[in-house]
Design a protein around this nucleic acid. Sequence first.
DNA 1: TTGACATATATCGATCATCTATATATATTT
DNA 2: AAATATATATAGATGATCGATATATGTCAA
Lengths: 113, 113
Amino acid sequence: MTINKSLLTGSTTMLILKLLDDQDMYGYQMIEELAKRSDHTFSLKAGTLYPLLHTLEDQGMVRSYERNADNARVRKYYSLTKKGDEMLAEQKQEWKTYISAVNQVLQGGVNFA
Amino acid sequence: MTINKSLLTGSTTMLILKLLDDQDMYGYQMIEELAKRSDHTFSLKAGTLYPLLHTLEDQGMVRSYERNADNARVRKYYSLTKKGDEMLAEQKQEWKTYISAVNQVLQGGVNFA
DNA sequence: TTGACATATATCGATCATCTATATATATTT
DNA sequence: AAATATATATAGATGATCGATATATGTCAA
């Protein structure tokens, strides 16, 4: 099933922060990991991710460092800052509020008042 | 709690169709009903709703008719078409897929493989 | 009865998140 | 040697929603 891309709007940052909350990762890895954990429901595009990571770094939500892979290739890893961790907590709360509001609308039927 | 407006992106149409699935409504009423059912988490803006209703009508998802209120004021009511009902079913399925994917990412922790 | 506020619909331009397309470079496989 | 996968980056396009504004009617209080 392919989901409407606009549904993802607004939750992408939260998902990225969550990945980094679990462990440091490099960009390409985040794309693969998101696809894997979501059973390929999500396929975040590189053109979305890299600018987003730069913005998060400018905002102090994440830090980056370069590191060689086994094959001597350089990868740019990101790690979550304290500020990013706090942002994640806020966004998870917003997410809960949001889905419960949507579900309330979906469950509400005709009013037999 | 105020949720990020971008979280709503993509689910607005589904919510409108759901309201009309329950009963015919006019635009202003939809805005109030969405706020009420979501405990004021949602405050859909008129500038979003009215153009959206026009688009849905052009697409054959809803039909409209004018009707006098008790005070003789004219209101524009909308009703769901068969096509709109089918679209709602699809969007509800997409919604389920989407939230379960997000929740899977949020629950997934470090991989101790 | 006038003025303020709520109800009701409409449109325009701005904003913002995401995508597509493109570019570049290295590593791996055929 | 060529094709494909890995890895990062940026520019411009798209699309959903909002803020601002306009217009008109109904209601309530001073």
